[in-house]
Lab assay of single mutants.
Amino acid sequence: TVKFKYKGEEKQVDISKIKKVWRVGKMISFTYDEGGGKTGRGAVSEKDAPKELLQ
């Protein structure tokens, strides 16, 4: 599970739902399947990112 803040809201998403991951400076950005055909997005700092996300 990845915990992150998006627009001031605390969120979390299961690693299995993450589609795409990329690095922006010291942040790790990602998109994930929100269900219902929607794609969500989020970002975590490199130090807070789970190891599975960095692979």
Rank of each mutant, 00 (worst) to 15 (best):
D33S: 06
G37C: 06
K47M: 11
P50Q: 04
E34A: 15
G36C: 12
D33C: 05
I18M: 05
L54K: 08
K20I: 08
T1N: 07
S45V: 09
E46W: 14
G35C: 04
G36Q: 11
K51I: 15
G37Q: 05
I28D: 00
K26V: 12
S16E: 11
E52Y: 10
K5D: 07
K11Q: 06
E10V: 14
K26D: 15
K26H: 14
A49F: 14
D48W: 11
K11N: 04
Y32V: 02
K17S: 11
V13Q: 01
T39G: 04
G36V: 07
K7D: 08
G40V: 06
G25R: 04
Q55I: 14
K20F: 11
G40P: 02
T39V: 14
V2P: 01
R41F: 15
I28T: 01
G35K: 06
Y32P: 00
E10L: 12
V2I: 15
L54Y: 06
K7Y: 09
Q55S: 12
I15W: 05
D14G: 05
G37R: 04
P50K: 02
E34T: 09
G35F: 05
W22L: 06
K5P: 05
Y6D: 10
T1M: 14
F30E: 00
E10C: 11
G25D: 04
A49Y: 03
F30G: 00
K11W: 05
K19E: 08
E52A: 12
F4A: 03
F4L: 03
D14C: 09
I28S: 00
V2G: 01
P50Y: 02
S29W: 15
G8A: 03
K51A: 13
T31I: 13
K51G: 09
Q12R: 09
I18C: 02
S45I: 08
K3E: 05
S16C: 10
W22Q: 06
S45Q: 12
Q55R: 13
K17A: 12
T31A: 05
V44P: 00
G40D: 03
L54F: 06
E46Y: 14
G25A: 04
Q55N: 13
K3R: 13
S16I: 12
V24Q: 13
K26Q: 13
G42N: 02
I15G: 02
T39F: 13
M27R: 07
V44S: 02
G35T: 05
D33W: 07
D14R: 07
G25K: 05
G25C: 06
I28K: 00
S16R: 10
T31Q: 05
V2Q: 01
S29K: 15
L53M: 08
S16L: 10
G8N: 07
Y6I: 11
S16G: 09
K26M: 11
I28R: 00
E10I: 12
K47T: 11
T39S: 07
G40H: 07
M27W: 15
R23G: 03
E52M: 09
E52C: 08
S16Q: 10
I15P: 02
G40Y: 06
K38Q: 09
G37T: 04
L53K: 01
D14P: 14
K17G: 04
V24F: 11
Q12G: 04
G35Q: 05
W22R: 07
G40T: 05
V21A: 11
Q55P: 06
I15C: 06
K19N: 08
Y32E: 00
G36M: 11
T1W: 12
K20L: 11
K17C: 12
S16A: 13
R41D: 03
V21D: 01
I18W: 00
Y32D: 00
G36N: 15
A43F: 15
G8M: 04
R41E: 08
S29T: 14
D48Q: 10
K7A: 10
T31P: 00
K19R: 13
M27D: 05
T39E: 11
R23D: 02
K38F: 07
K3A: 06
K51T: 12
V2M: 07
I18A: 01
G42W: 03
G42R: 01
I15N: 02
V13F: 03
V13A: 04
G35P: 09
L54N: 03
K7H: 13
Y32N: 00
A43K: 12
Y32M: 02
K5M: 14
M27A: 05
K38P: 03
T31L: 14
D48M: 10
G36K: 08
F30D: 00
K19L: 15
K11M: 12
M27Y: 15
L53I: 05
E34F: 06
Q55W: 11
D33K: 03
G42P: 00
L54M: 07
K38Y: 06
D14T: 07
F4Y: 05
F4K: 01
R41A: 06
Y32L: 01
P50C: 04
P50H: 05
K3Q: 07
K51C: 12
R23W: 14
K17Q: 13
E9R: 11
V24T: 14
D48Y: 13
Q12I: 15
S29P: 02
K47Y: 11
Q55H: 12
V21E: 01
I15R: 03
K3G: 03
V2D: 01
F30V: 01
F30I: 02
G36D: 13
L53T: 01
G42Y: 05
T39A: 07
K5W: 15
K20Y: 12
G36I: 05
S45N: 15
K7L: 13
W22S: 05
K17D: 10
E9Y: 08
G42L: 02
G25F: 04
R23N: 04
I18L: 08
Q12S: 14
S29M: 15
S16M: 11
I18T: 02
G8D: 06
L54C: 07
K11R: 15
F30N: 00
F30H: 00
E46S: 11
E46A: 14
K11Y: 12
L53E: 00
Q55G: 09
S45K: 13
Y6A: 07
A43S: 14
G42C: 04
Q55D: 14
